[in-house]
């Protein structure tokens, strides 16, 4: 594979184990043996060039570990990971100019410096001449809506603005592969919507994007394909429409003032996975099949219930359905 490779990311049998030394137990002289934890367990994955690929999984699933290996920050224990055909362990100098990385959170910036100074620093690290760096910095600040605050200290920025600056930093090197690790965590809905719009623009520019997220709706909206990962194992790669089906399949219907007789009838509807009644008499109907929600809603409306709503399950709830009750355990 070369830089014209159709595969932006090719990962085979990738494993990463962390070994952690442990302190002595009280009253014992000998140290406890080191504890090892497998964050990635023989993952195999390919991402074609130009794709927006989602990595979905609960905390501790191994998403960030994979992002760090692909960005050369972390060395894998075994297996192979390539970016545009270049091995991330032995060809770091070829990989790094091709990759932009946004690892999420507020860390990673020089908060006492301005947004422009931060971006100029990173443009220099991506080996751009000063004039080119200044031009690119100005364009990115404008594109990310930060031009009015460009010369203010980053420490005065809101979380959303810092996140946008991180994204600008990730783009300053004009990367072919952009790794976004939970980029919308902590953003308000408007900022998250703007961010999604930007991801679409970047996709239209032909960039490959690897996006980790907890948000299934976001994954469904943005990604060409989605890989589910849990406890370091790859569960599968799906079309986002499949996720849409999961979301609608496990929809919930909540209603108030539902007569007991109607509740019994709802329990008998095909596809109803369960009905819970809280202390205030409100019921939550969990569905597990296409069209079940519509049938339940129809029954409720026919029964004269007017206070009702539907909601989609969270990623964690879908995980509970997909992989059982240990779905939320951090491995």
């Amino acid at each position: 594979m070369t830089e014209s490779s159709p595969l932006a990311v090719a990962v085979a049998d990738l494993t990463r184990t962390f070994v952690r030394s442990r302190s002595r137990l009280p009253g014992r002289l000998k140290r406890r043996p080191p504890e090892s934890r497998t964050a990635l367990d023989a993952i195999t994955l390919t991402v074609p060039s130009g794709e927006v690929h989602g990595l979905l999984g609960p905390n501790g699933a191994g998403k960030t570990t994979l992002c760090k290996i692909l960005s050369t920050v972390l060395i894998p224990t075994s297996g192979i990971a390539k970016v545009f055909g270049h091995d991330v362990v032995v060809s770091t100098t070829r990989v790094r100019p091709l990759v932009g990385v946004v690892l999420g959170g507020e860390r990673g910036l020089y908060t006492r410096l301005t947004a422009r100074q931060n971006l100029m620093y990173w443009s220099a690290l991506y080996r751009q001449p000063t004039s080119e760096g200044a031009e690119r910095t100005a364009k990115l600040l404008e594109r990310l809506g930060l031009e009015e605050r460009a010369d203010e200290r980053v420490e005065t920025f809101s979380r959303g603005m810092k996140q946008r600056l991180h994204l600008a930093r990730g783009l300053v090197g004009n990367p072919r592969l952009l790794i976004l690790d939970e980029p919308t965590v902590g953003l308000d809905p408007a900022a998250a919507r703007d961010f999604r719009g930007l991801v679409r623009q970047l996709r239209a520019e032909g960039r490959t994007i690897l996006l980790t997220t907890h948000d299934m709706t976001e994954a469904e909206e943005l990604c060409d394909r989605v890989t589910l990962i849990d406890s370091g194992k790859l569960l599968g790669t799906e079309d986002p429409r499949t996720i849409g089906e999961w979301l609608s399949a496990w929809e919930r219907v909540t209603a108030e003032g539902v007569p007991a007789e109607l509740i019994d009838r709802i329990r008998k509807v095909e596809g109803v996975a369960g009905v819970e009644i809280d202390s205030e008499g409100r019921i939550t109907v969990e569905t597990a099949g296409d069209g079940t929600s519509a049938a339940v809603l129809s029954l409720l409306v026919d029964g004269g219930v007017t206070s009702l709503s539907t909601s989609r399950p969270s990623l964690e709830e879908v995980y509970l359905h997909l992989i059982g009750s240990r779905g939320l355990n951090v491995g």
Binding site: K68, S71, T72, V73, T93, R96, P97, V99, V101, L103, G105, R107, G108, L109, Y110, T111, W122, A124, L125, Y126, R127, R169, G173
Partner: peptide, 18 residues
């Protein structure tokens, strides 16, 4: 400490020169 080292490592510039 401030989370910048991993981004510096991921950049194409040699950390020692920086």
């Amino acid at each position: 400490t401030d989370g910048r080292l991993e981004l510096l490592v991921a950049s194409p510039s040699p950390v020692a020169v920086v």
